[in-house]
Simulated assay, not measured.
Amino acid sequence: MRVPLVGVGWDALSLVEQAADERPLIERRAVARDGFYELQARTVIERVPQTAGIAQQWAVSPYRGCAHACRGCGARAGHRRLGLDAGRDFDTRIVVKANAVARLRAELARWDGQELAVGLSGDCYQPAEETYRLMPGVIGALAEAAVPFTVYTKSALVVRDAELLARAGARVAVSIAFVDERIRRAVEPGAPGAQARLELVSALVEAGVECRVLMAPVLPLLSDATDQLTATVRRIAATGAGAVEPVVLRLPPGTRSWYLEWLAQAHPQLVERYEELYDRSGLPSADYEGRITGQIAQLCQMYGMRCGASAVERREPRAAQLALV
């Protein structure tokens, strides 16, 4: 009989256990059910990597891994700590934090009120959510604790919870980096098309949810031409979105190897330029990033939208800050 995981203290795994069983760590420590890995997480509030490019410093993710299979997803390295690879395994072997709601409530009881991002290590409304329905509980816990939060997603399933999100005063950031379907099929093969996401933004705005567009990731030399950026911002503006937050592609460890492997096959002439453009941590050059975000800011002004991350009103914390270990 398989023993379910009682925590995610990967570093605490004994050398004896490792030697006795050569299966990936997640297969030894989680319950496999209906194509998912179910585990009991010790903590669910995690620090956001500095390379992520978003405003929040802390995040909650009910799922790790993502069926959208976006080649540039910056969360891929997390699968390596589970004994899985950051490529195909990340796309197909989804980890479910089955106790996410209970753990979140416990941690929020000692949280200091900082805004949280929801859904960074895997889209929180990917197909796994249809099975596990963790998000209504996550939204409820955050609302009860009066903690501001932003949900990051590409999925229309978020509309199911539009009323809950509106009542909670949540923000939703829908990722639309480009509107060229040829690029989307190549780099986001499991995600909804751009038109579906544009319609999603309109639906959320109509439902009274504060909605912004995360224009991410802008792909160097693939989706960063002036006409491409203009077309994307123009179509976003037509949805009624309040703001655009641009983020140029990040290539942290794990993501870098997977993305460049694809790039070498699809666009081999660009590999050398990417190697020059990105530093060892996976960040693009400051000059390039400043130029692209500056162009998008000008386009947003032209089409009457705010650009960049906006400040969140800090709410009164319910209790002292949680000490995360």
Score class of each variant (00 low, 15 high):
Leu5Gln: 10
Trp10Asn: 12
Asp11Thr: 13
Leu13Asn: 00
Asp21Cys: 00
Leu25Met: 11
Ala32Met: 13
Asp34Ala: 15
Gly35Thr: 09
Phe36Trp: 15
Phe36Leu: 14
Gln40Ile: 10
Val48Phe: 09
Trp58Ser: 09
Arg64Gly: 12
Arg64Val: 15
Cys66Gly: 09
Gly78Asn: 13
Gly83Val: 06
Asp85Thr: 11
Gly87Glu: 06
Ile94Val: 15
Ala102Gln: 15
Ala102His: 12
Ala102Asp: 15
Arg105Asn: 07
Ala106Glu: 15
Ala106Val: 11
Leu108Trp: 07
Gly113Ile: 04
Leu116Trp: 01
Gly119Asn: 10
Cys124Met: 07
Glu129Tyr: 10
Glu130Asp: 13
Arg133Asn: 03
Leu134Arg: 09
Ala143Cys: 05
Glu144Gln: 13
Val147Glu: 08
Val159Gln: 06
Asp161Cys: 04
Val172Asp: 02
Val174Trp: 09
Phe178Gly: 08
Phe178Arg: 06
Glu181Trp: 01
Glu181Leu: 04
Arg185Asp: 14
Arg185Met: 09
Pro189Leu: 14
Gly190Thr: 09
Arg197Gly: 08
Arg197His: 04
Glu206Gly: 00
Glu206Tyr: 09
Cys211Leu: 04
Val213Arg: 05
Val218Gly: 12
Leu219Lys: 04
Ala243Pro: 01
Val244Asn: 03
Glu245Cys: 08
Arg250Asp: 05
Pro252Glu: 05
Glu261Gln: 09
Glu272Thr: 10
Asp279Gln: 03
Arg280Tyr: 00
Pro284Val: 02
Ser285Lys: 10
Ala286Glu: 13
Glu289Met: 05
Thr293Pro: 03
Gly294Ala: 01
Gln298Ser: 07
Met302Thr: 10
Tyr303Met: 02
Arg306His: 03
Ala320Lys: 09
Gln321Met: 14
Gln321Tyr: 05
Val325Pro: 00
